[in-house]
């Protein structure tokens, strides 16, 4: 008998614990998290480039030297995707899907997809300097990763 679970009951795939991801990015010695308030001006800019404001009025970030790490999450199709973004200077140096909760489309967690974000920065128009190739069957997840990449770069530039 085949047991079919609704998407909401299927277990989320945890590729890496967010705390471990942060620690890894700072060679095992992560800084204390800081709080970044998303001002009305920043929300307005986020709305402009992403089509909607960021869902909360503050985010945490970890910064040491020129490296900043954000753990952001947003809805793919119906479930949240938790993503780690590492920014060195003003460019993305690492993007990793940490927790994937959708029932389909987890190809976005593969290295062949996320490595497309390496060295990407934000143009003045608000677009990424390089658009990642879409994955058939994972369009909404691809859009979420791109949207959060833009958000991470913009937030980082405002620190």
């Amino acid at each position: 008998m085949l047991l079919i679970l609704p998407a909401s009951l299927e277990a989320a795939k945890t590729y890496q614990n967010p705390t471990d991801f942060i620690s890894e990015q700072f060679s095992g010695a992560p800084p204390t998290a800081k709080i970044q308030t998303i001002t009305p001006a920043l929300q307005s800019r986020l709305s402009q480039i992403n089509g909607s404001p960021y869902k909360s009025s503050r985010v945490r970030y970890w910064k040491k030297g020129t490296r900043t790490v954000y753990i952001l999450e947003d809805i793919g199709k119906t479930q949240l995707i938790t993503i780690g973004y590492v920014i060195d200077g003003q460019k993305l140096s690492n993007v990793k899907v940490l927790i994937y909760r959708e029932s389909h489309g987890d190809d976005v967690s593969r290295t062949y997809f996320t490595k497309q974000f390496k060295s990407v920065d934000l143009k003045s128009s608000g677009k990424l300097s390089k658009k990642p190739r879409n994955i058939a069957g994972a369009t909404m997840s691809v859009r979420t990763l791109s949207r959060m990449a833009r958000a991470a770069l913009l937030l980082s530039s405002a620190i």
Binding site: P18, T19, K55, S56, S57, V59, R60
Partner: peptide, 11 residues
Amino acid sequence: TLIEALETGLS
């Protein structure tokens, strides 16, 4: 208005 979604083990 949502200020933050705090997660165990992180925030």
